[in-house]
Computed example of a mutant assay.
Amino acid sequence: MRYGTTDVLTGVNFTARPGEVVALLGPNGAGKTTTIEILEGFRMRSAGEVTVLATDPAHGNENWRARLGVVLQSWRDHGPWKVRELLAHLGDYYLPYSSGRITRPWPVDELIEVVGLTEHADKKIMKLSGGQRRRLDVAIGIVGRPELLFLDEPTAGFDPEARREFHDLVHRLADEQTTILLTTHDLDEAEKLADRILILAGGRIIANGSADELARQLATETEIRWTVDGQRFVHSTVDATGYVRELFRKHDERVADLEVRRGSLEDVYMTLVRQFEAGEHDAAVRDFTEVAR
């Protein structure tokens, strides 16, 4: 994608499989929103090939769009409508289409229950709290049981209980073979939800893998905690296996309460982005690729 003489996306390559949850992470200005809008067909790319549900989004018709679900960071306000009325009205737009798959909109009451709005089903939208409106945004996005769902910061404004319920919903949709592309700044959420994580920086994908794969392959520091004769010790190292072996060689059975904590997704993310910003990205990617092999 190019704006004037500036490339904001270049060489972004990935595939998402049916039922896979893919998280797209990156700092502000990395190109996440532009990538998503190209995939949704809302923005035309400058070059390259894109296929979404066997269709080029630039030429996607109404039948194709009926197979997508989109949850934006904010939704147009339908204040005077009641929750049940709006979802029933939107569900009526989904009809059988030519691909042979019959759209099956969620039964309204079931959908309302799934997103946790049962007690508010007959309440006007203008009376909902911020978190309740966010649940409604999600309900609008999945009302047509999409094959592919785009979620842009979906749990913004959710309390911990609502967040946990939403995570259960994402897993349920994935079990039904819905492909989900998620953008979030909540790295803990990405680690919990995503089968695969893409880290975007400077318009390029600089990492692609599960949270565990990224942590292992990037060799971020691992924190080791243990006690010897009741005294507590903590040490960080990139060679956890070697360090633990040496620990037992020196202290043998005196080592107790051993904990090994591999670098988190946040550690991996911050390391990659800092390397990229420091101009060390190409070397980091070469090292990452060699370890992956």
Rank of each mutant, 00 (worst) to 15 (best):
L72M: 14
H235N: 09
D252P: 09
D212W: 10
F42Y: 10
I199N: 02
T183H: 01
A211V: 02
R254T: 05
E191I: 02
L39H: 08
I142D: 08
E165C: 06
R145K: 09
V71S: 04
L187N: 10
K250G: 03
G100H: 05
H171F: 14
L24Y: 01
Q177A: 13
D239G: 07
G202H: 06
L53M: 09
T34N: 02
A23V: 03
A194E: 06
A174S: 15
L148Y: 08
F150D: 00
L24K: 00
R196M: 03
R134N: 09
R45C: 06
L111Q: 02
T5I: 14
L218Q: 08
E266M: 10
L149M: 11
S74F: 08
G41Y: 03
P105C: 13
Q231R: 14
T227I: 05
V273I: 15
Q217A: 12
A16N: 03
K82I: 12
V238G: 07
V12W: 06
L148M: 13
D77H: 11
T178K: 01
R76F: 11
I206R: 04
G202F: 02
T10L: 11
I180W: 06
I199C: 01
V260Y: 05
T271V: 12
L169F: 08
A207L: 10
A66V: 07
A156D: 12
L24V: 14
F276R: 09
T34W: 00
V268T: 02
L151C: 06
E113Q: 05
A284L: 13
L95K: 15
E189I: 02
G100I: 14
F288T: 01
S129L: 01
E280G: 11
